[in-house]
């Protein structure tokens, strides 16, 4: 099993000091290599929080996350940073590219951090995502769809075992979103990586192999 989540809980401080907002309540799930999973749910149901916890971007209150045999929930700050560098690739809705680096440097950045620099792969991914002509442009010079393609290429360039995507097409128009989604799924499948994707879109969710629905911090099978 690539990813195993057991009884995971997370809360955030609420508007009243003694009443935290419970975001996740005993969530458990598992994901195998090569599998794709869509997480759907209402706004505030905890989808992004779950993704952040798996990526080691935040700490859980209780429960376990086992990723590639290592317990993320017991890792310190340095361990979680190493996990983000080498094991997962995260794609955000806001793209979150590094504004000071050009497209080529953005795509290769995480792979180089992970010690897996491969310029040929950067070129190949850029070519596959239609970014070949934009390698020396800066993020601000790209359209939204192009920026999201760079984010996808960056996540894949480090050959992560697990891709975590948070509404990756939420900022794109329908046609561009469909195109970017198709490219993402093709590349994930090509790499043999697992994909866990948060989405509001029914159409996007149906393209993935599994689907789970979060309601008030608890998982229920998707429709």
């Amino acid at each position: 099993m690539l990813l195993e989540i057991r009884d995971l809980s997370k809360s955030y401080p609420g508007p009243e000091p003694d009443r935290p907002v419970q975001v996740l309540r005993g969530v458990s799930l598992s994901l195998d290599a090569g599998q794709t999973l869509a997480l759907t749910g209402e706004s505030g149901s905890g989808k992004s929080t779950l993704l952040h916890l798996v990526a080691g971007l935040d700490h859980a209150d209780a429960g376990q996350i086992l990723l590639d045999g290592r317990e993320v929930t017991r890792m310190d700050d340095t361990g979680r940073a190493a996990l983000r560098r080498g094991t997962v690739g995260v794609i955000f809705q806001q793209f979150n590219l590094i504004p000071s680096l050009d497209v080529a440097a953005n795509i290769g950045f995480q792979a180089r951090l992970a010690g897996r620099a491969d310029p040929a792969r950067v070129l190949a991914l850029a070519g596959a995502l239609g970014l070949g002509a934009h390698l020396h442009k800066y993020p601000e010079q790209l359209s939204g769809g192009q920026q999201q393609r760079v984010a996808i290429a960056r996540a894949l360039a480090a050959r992560p075992r697990l891709i975590l995507a948070d509404e990756p097409t939420g900022n794109l128009d329908e046609a561009t979103a469909a195109e970017v989604m198709a490219q993402l799924l093709a590349l994930v499948s090509e790499e043999g990586a697992a994909l866990m994707m948060v989405t509001h879109s029914e159409r996007m969710a149906t393209q993935l192999s599994r689907r789970l629905h979060l309601r008030q911090g608890q998982l229920e099978p998707g429709p």
Partner: peptide
């Protein structure tokens, strides 16, 4: 923050 957060998310610690 928007410039530093992506680098943090990609694997640099806050202390670093």
């Amino acid at each position: 923050l928007p410039q530093l957060a992506p680098v943090w998310a990609l694997g640099l610690t806050q202390r670093h």
